[in-house]
Design a protein around this nucleic acid. Structure first.
Ligand code: FES
Ligand code: FES
Lengths: 132, 132
DNA sequence: ACTATAAAGGTATTAGAGTACCTAAATAGA
DNA sequence: TCTATTTAGGTACTCTAATACCTTTATAGT
């Protein structure tokens, strides 16, 4: 149990994109990336379908096919990647994600929201090119 | 999607325990608590089975039955409650919860671990009695 | 053109959190 | 003692992320 925990999908996305950056302009296949990350190729493929549709990478089918990072994708933030994979991030609101609470003031006040904001800022200030 | 997100089970536990503290020495039933919190009574009952076994509350069956906070439970920390409900917390290690990583240094360095530690400290420094 | 390869994408299975339901055991009150 | 109530605890269902499998589509290389 970890208090801050990112999903396997996000793990795959950031690690793969950094690998693509490092191997630029090589084209890397889903199979290769999955092996490299010790992740499921099926899951990785699904994640890359999202990244392709979002325009982060370009896919090429067929033999010697695979994925390449798009020109301006080095400057994409981890927050963008997070939202492509996980959906829109909500920075405000209770850490319990509840709309109703029996108490008038949220138990944790905004202390945890402040920490959430810090995680958000960290994601938003980190780019693929930071790992050149 | 929230970056820091606590489970329904933990929501139930802390809110219920604070209600028990506020209504002391009244005995509150699972039904009443579930209504109060707008939560599932079934889920709440399961959570309270853990809290009872852990000695945080005492349960009484039968009509006018319910739960009361134990004497020293006001001083129990939110971290203790978290671990009773969710299992042992791991403060170190990568936010992706992976044992293997393709990179030599963790992507986020220890910046996110620092934030995890702050959440941990917040939980560890908050007690039921803070909400008297 | 043919063929082998790799992504696209649909469907199905698995694992875990949350939910619901049912029976047994305890107990307060008549 | 009897009855209604409430927790204990087992089982089963639902929903979602992750995983796996399979068919279709595109394409590089011959
Ligand atoms: S909703 Fe935030 S603490 Fe109750
Ligand atoms: S495991 Fe922490 S970033 Fe790769």
């Amino acid at each position: 149990m970890s208090l801050i925990n990112f999903s396997e999908g996000f793990f795959i996305a950031v690690h793969s994109l950094i690998l693509l950056e490092k191997h630029k302009p090589e084209r890397l296949s889903a199979k290769f990336l999955a092996q490299e990350l010790h992740s499921s190729q099926a899951h990785l493929s699904k994640v890359f379908q999202k990244l392709t549709k979002a325009g982060v990478v370009t896919s090429v089918r067929g033999p010697a096919g695979g994925f390449v990072l798009n020109k301006d994708s080095e400057e994409i933030t981890f927050l963008d990647i997070y939202e492509i994979v996980e959906g829109r991030v909500n920075i405000s609101g209770c850490v319990f994600g509840k709309s109703y609470c029996a108490f008038t003031t949220c138990i944790f006040g905004n202390e945890l929201n402040k920490l959430t904001k810090e995680v958000y800022d960290k994601l938003n200030s980190t780019k693929i090119s930071d790992f050149r």
